[in-house]
Amino acid sequence: MAARIIKVSPMFAVCFFGFGLGKRLQQRKPDDVLIVNDLSAPRILFAGGLAGIFNWEVAIPPDMLTSHFQTAPPGKYPNGFRDVLRELIREEGAASLYKGFTAVLIRAFPSNAACFLGFEVAMKFLNWVAPGL
């Protein structure tokens, strides 16, 4: 459980940072006022896609280590992820931690864009149903 928290906490942190950044980049008005709730669906989709890219830039290396560890024969890595990391870097170089990066980003942009659009629509609905909560 603790290992999972350590793995996903940075991913979620940069994911929501990317979403906030994507929203703020598009909210600038000529008079430099931020209008938080007036983003259109395409703008929210862009911010959500940006969040997915930020997320997976951080998530790919731990995900790669986890995949190698889980698919290895029992006992191959007695020291856990440190052994996996050493072997990957020794045999394939540091770039091996980013295998499949392009494919992941191609998938991450639309899936996270849709997810964050759903989040924003749900928040607007909940604010309409129960304002002020």
Results as ranks from 00 to 15, higher is better:
1 M>C: 09
2 A>S: 12
2 A>L: 12
2 A>Y: 14
2 A>K: 13
3 A>L: 11
4 R>K: 11
5 I>V: 13
8 V>P: 14
9 S>A: 15
10 P>T: 15
10 P>G: 15
10 P>M: 15
11 M>R: 05
12 F>V: 13
12 F>I: 12
12 F>K: 07
13 A>Q: 03
14 V>H: 06
15 C>Y: 14
16 F>L: 12
16 F>R: 08
18 G>F: 06
18 G>T: 06
20 G>K: 08
21 L>G: 08
22 G>Q: 08
22 G>L: 08
23 K>E: 12
24 R>P: 14
25 L>V: 12
26 Q>L: 14
26 Q>K: 05
27 Q>N: 10
27 Q>P: 11
27 Q>L: 05
27 Q>A: 12
28 R>W: 07
28 R>M: 05
29 K>S: 14
30 P>C: 10
31 D>H: 10
31 D>K: 07
31 D>P: 00
31 D>F: 08
32 D>E: 14
33 V>G: 00
33 V>L: 07
34 L>F: 06
34 L>A: 02
35 I>W: 11
35 I>Y: 12
36 V>E: 12
36 V>S: 13
36 V>L: 13
37 N>W: 07
38 D>K: 10
39 L>Y: 11
39 L>F: 13
39 L>G: 04
39 L>C: 09
39 L>V: 05
40 S>W: 07
41 A>R: 06
41 A>E: 11
42 P>W: 02
43 R>W: 05
44 I>P: 03
44 I>K: 03
45 L>Y: 01
46 F>S: 04
46 F>E: 00
46 F>Q: 02
47 A>H: 01
48 G>D: 01
49 G>R: 03
50 L>F: 04
52 G>F: 01
53 I>E: 06
53 I>F: 00
55 N>Q: 09
56 W>V: 09
56 W>Y: 09
57 E>H: 02
58 V>C: 03
59 A>K: 04
59 A>L: 07
61 P>T: 03
61 P>S: 01
62 P>W: 14
63 D>S: 14
64 M>L: 09
67 S>I: 12
67 S>V: 08
67 S>F: 13
67 S>Y: 13
68 H>N: 14
70 Q>N: 10
73 P>S: 04
74 P>M: 15
75 G>P: 09
75 G>R: 11
75 G>M: 06
76 K>R: 12
77 Y>Q: 07
78 P>S: 06
79 N>V: 00
79 N>G: 02
80 G>A: 06
80 G>W: 11
82 R>T: 06
83 D>Y: 02
83 D>K: 11
84 V>F: 00
85 L>I: 04
85 L>R: 11
85 L>N: 10
86 R>S: 11
87 E>P: 13
88 L>T: 07
88 L>F: 05
89 I>H: 06
91 E>N: 15
91 E>R: 14
92 E>G: 04
92 E>Q: 14
93 G>D: 02
93 G>P: 09
